[in-house]
Simulated scan of single mutants.
Amino acid sequence: MTDNQPIALPEEAAPLHAVSCQLCELANQRSRVIWGEGNPEGRIIMLLDNPGAREDREGRAFVCGTRATLQLGAAEAGLDMNDVYVTYVLKCRPVRKYDKETARNRCRAHLLSQLEQKRPKLMICLGNVAVQAFFQDPEAEVKQLRGSWYDIAGLPTTVSYHPLAVRRRPVLMRMFVEDLKRVAARSVEIGGASIVPSGEEQPEKGN
């Protein structure tokens, strides 16, 4: 790991049509819609399953385990988080049981709208939920798909483990960093981005 200290990435305000969304039951349990965070014009989109907490019980901003592990992995991989926008399969943070399949299917319209508006150059799906939702394949798994690039709706896409899985199973960190290095290298290939020095040799190009 590096000495890089994770920070709370700036949150992008949700558009009006999403703020008032009633497409699924999460509308009845959310405190608000969380559209995404990081650089809204970033060439790389990272897709997670759903938002985590951004404030503690006293309302003070803090960096949760998912965000901390993601940023530390990116720093070790030399991936500049200034090139990254983080968003979610679900735009609401669940607080109790809900119909997961229905919520994910209905929230897909918001993700597709985001991609159409932002037109990123690369996508990385983190965790099986994000992979299955974006690939539209309920059997898709990170361990089988990682290491390669896929054309999903015209967007070059790769996959890796969810940062919380990496946090709980440190043995996954090496593979997590490898996958993020692949994204950093591909971003440089397509131009306009730089790899942040990490003191490590950069990997060969991904498939």
Rank of each mutant, 00 (worst) to 15 (best):
L79A: 00
D80W: 01
M81R: 07
V86K: 06
V86I: 14
V86F: 11
T87S: 11
T87Q: 05
V89Y: 00
V89R: 02
K91I: 09
C92H: 01
P94A: 04
Y98D: 02
D99Y: 03
K100A: 10
E101W: 11
A109Y: 10
H110G: 03
L111Y: 03
L115V: 06
E116P: 04
K118Q: 15
R119W: 12
L122Y: 06
I124Y: 00
N128E: 12
V129A: 14
V129T: 15
V129Q: 15
A133P: 10
A133N: 14
A133Q: 13
F135D: 05
F135M: 14
F135Q: 09
Q136W: 11
Q136R: 15
D137S: 13
D137Y: 08
P138D: 07
E139Q: 15
E141F: 12
K143F: 12
Q144M: 13
S148P: 00
Y150Q: 00
Y150I: 00
D151F: 04
I152C: 09
P156N: 06
T157C: 02
V159Q: 01
V159P: 03
H162W: 08
L164D: 12
A165E: 15
R168S: 15
R168F: 09
R168W: 11
R169S: 15
P170E: 14
L172A: 10
M175W: 05
F176H: 07
L180A: 06
K181I: 00
R182M: 12
V183F: 01
A185T: 05
R186H: 03
V188Q: 02
V188S: 02
I190D: 07
